[in-house]
C-alpha cells in the first residue's frame, strides 16, 4: 500500500464524498416529501390521484435508478427539458426514493389500529385533527426502521451518479485506477469513504430499532 499516494489523493476523495452526500441528502429529503404525500393519498383513497400514485410507484420500483437517470439526463433534453447533472442526480434519486418512502409511511399508517382513529373521532375531533395528533405521530415512529433502511439503500444507490458525469466517489476511483494503476489504494479509499458515509447511518438505524422494540407501543 502506497501511503503517499493515499495522502496525495485524499482531498480528491473528500470533495467527491461531499458531492455524494450533498446530492444524496437533497434527493432523500425530496423523496421523503414525495413519499409522505403519496402515502396520504393512498391512505385516504383519494380518487384519480390514487391511481396516478399507484402508476408512479410501479414505474419507480420496477426500473433501475441507472436507467431512470439516463432517461432524465440524456432523453428528456430531446423534448426540451434540460437540467444540470447535480439536479438530475437529485431528481432521479427522489423519483426512485419517493416510492420506497411512500411504502414505509403507508405500512406505518396501516399498522395503526382503526380504533385509534375512532376513539379520536368519538372525542369530537375532526378527521384532520385525529390524523395530526393521534394517527400520524404513531405511524411515523412505526415507520422509522423502514425509513432508515430506505435512507441507507438510497445512499448506496448514489454510486451510479458517475454515469451522468458527476465527479463522485466512483468516478474518482475509476479515474485514478485508469490514470495511475494504483488499484489497491484507489479501491481502499473508495471502501473507506463509503464506510464513513454509510456506517453511522446503519448504526443509528439499529440503535433506533432496538429502542423502539423495547419501548414498544400498544398494550
Amino acid at each position: 500500500m502506497n501511503w503517499d499516494f493515499i495522502q496525495e489523493y485524499l482531498p480528491l476523495y473528500e470533495s467527491a464524498a461531499l458531492l455524494t452526500v450533498k446530492i444524496g441528502v437533497a434527493g432523500i429529503a425530496l423523496s421523503i416529501v414525495i413519499g409522505f404525500l403519496c402515502a396520504v393519498v393512498l391512505f385516504f383513497k383519494i380518487p384519480v390521484l390514487r391511481q396516478a400514485v399507484s402508476v408512479y410507484i410501479e414505474i419507480s420500483r420496477n426500473t433501475p435508478l441507472l436507467i431512470q437517470l439516463f432517461f432524465i439526463y440524456y432523453a428528456l433534453p430531446k423534448i426540451g427539458i434540460k437540467i444540470n447533472p447535480e439536479v438530475c442526480g437529485m431528481v432521479g434519486l427522489a423519483f426512485l426514493g419517493g416510492s420506497y418512502m411512500a411504502e414505509a409511511f403507508r405500512s406505518g399508517l396501516e399498522a395503526i389500529e382503526p380504533i385509534q382513529m375512532e376513539s379520536a373521532l368519538s372525542l369530537g375531533m375532526e378527521k384532520s385533527q385525529a390524523l395530526r395528533y393521534v394517527v400520524l405521530p404513531q405511524a411515523v415512529s412505526i415507520s422509522v426502521p423502514a425509513f432508515v433502511a430506505n435512507i441507507i439503500f438510497l445512499l448506496k444507490e448514489t454510486s451510479v451518479f458517475s454515469a451522468i458525469s458527476l465527479m463522485d466517489l466512483m468516478f474518482t476511483a475509476k479515474d485514478l485506477i485508469g490514470q495511475y494503476y494504483k488499484t489497491t489504494e484507489s479501491l481502499f479509499l473508495l471502501v473507506v469513504f463509503y464506510l464513513i458515509i454509510l456506517l453511522p447511518v446503519s448504526l443509528l438505524g439499529s440503535f433506533i430499532e432496538r429502542r423502539l422494540r423495547y419501548a414498544g407501543f400498544g398494550s
Binding site: K156, S159, A173, I177, T183, T184, L190, V191, Y194, L199
Partner: peptide
C-alpha cells in the same frame, strides 16, 4: 450489504486483476 453493489463490482473487476 453496506457496500454499494457497484463498489463490490469495482473491487472484483479491478482489484482481482491487480492483486
Amino acid at each position: 450489504r453496506i457496500m454499494p453493489q457497484l463498489v463490490l463490482l469495482f473491487i472484483v473487476f479491478f482489484g482481482t486483476t491487480r492483486t
